[in-house]
Design a binder for these strands. Structure first.
Lengths: 183, 183
DNA sequence: CACGAAGCGGATGTGGAACTCCGCTTCCGG
DNA sequence: CCGGAAGCGGAGTTCCACATCCGCTTCGTG
């Protein structure tokens, strides 16, 4: 691969990630190409179609969540570690319009679901188990719950972004409260 | 207005409501026209554009929520009345893909926000106040909370409809638990 | 019943976004 | 330093949904 081509591919990925965060999946490939400072054809040369680009960005988002999990795993206190992780994922959903649609493709594509489970599961499951053992998390709580609770926060953030950009935090807190074991 | 024209208008509204429930705002006017058994032009003769049709359907959805509120108001027990209302609104969001986008236009249009507040507020506020007085609902809970909690359930239902159509109930229950006063 | 206005349906126009084609430019091994 | 392969940009094509136009049909009044 020629060096300039590799450089352009990076530019497309970076611009794509930025536009995805800001505008969600609505962003057009024309916009991405323009933002990256390349022509549309260059985008299509690297990614056969729109979905292929999204696939590539999916892995980047996944890496981001993995990093959050690894950071939380470094916290000694089990309840705090879990809470920190859950909150940071919620924050990612709320502030990055690309996370929800990209990750939620897992519901539609077995390949995505597997990759998600394989890469994220081993890191997150211990957080859940430890928090349950410490009594700060209700039994029966699953990774899927974590994904969907975060998606819920994301949807609130989407609806209120224009008028009350910080409101999602209220609901994030409410949901975190809801993860405690029933009294 | 000619009788056949009035009849066709009704057919469009009914078909529009059905498609909105099933497919959400994605439904095309062509589909609506076909489902109603009329031509596209007939739809446009009654509603100058797509938004005008959605406006008309908005009022229908609103009536539906009002009916739910009136039904709940008939329940003597204040906590049960509020819970019933909240759950039934959540159910409406989860099973009718049209409710979220139609109602959430209130966030963008002052007119909708006013109409919503004017028609729904006086019915729902008493439910909230009574439940709070009875100690089953936390202080600071607002109508907006009710709308957004329901929207959250709707978003979960959207994401899981294909694979686990009843999963939204789990989160509905979780959120209702979250409306109790903190221990 | 007859006639004109009101209403009708679908062919057509318009616009925006995904995707392709092609003539020009840039890279890089010999 | 040069030839050609690899890469490039953007004009053009296709597709789909919204919206309009127009010749034909139906209603309902006199």
């Amino acid at each position: 691969m020629r060096s300039d081509a590799a450089f352009n591919r990076q530019r497309v990925l970076i611009a794509g990630a930025r536009l995805l965060s800001e505008q969600g999946v609505e962003a057009t490939l024309n916009d991405v190409a323009h933002a990256a400072g390349v022509g549309v054809a260059t985008v299509y040369r690297n990614f056969p179609n729109r979905d292929a680009l999204l696939d590539a960005l999916f892995q980047a988002k996944l890496d981001q969540l993995i990093e959050l999990a690894d950071h939380a795993a470094g916290i000694g206190d089990a309840p705090a570690a879990f809470d920190t992780y859950l909150y940071s994922v919620m924050e990612a959903h709320a502030t990055d319009r690309g996370v929800v649609p990209v990750l939620m493709r897992a519901n539609q594509s077995a390949r995505f679901a597997e990759e998600l489970a394989a890469q994220l599961g081993p890191r997150v499951q211990p957080l859940i188990v430890s928090a349950q053992a410490a009594g700060s998390l209700r039994d029966g709580f699953t990774i899927q719950d974590l994904c969907l609770l975060s998606a819920m926060v994301g949807s609130v953030a989407d609806l209120t972004r224009d008028t009350q950009p910080a409101l999602w935090e209220r609901y994030a807190q409410m949901l975190i409260d809801g993860t405690r074991p029933p009294a």
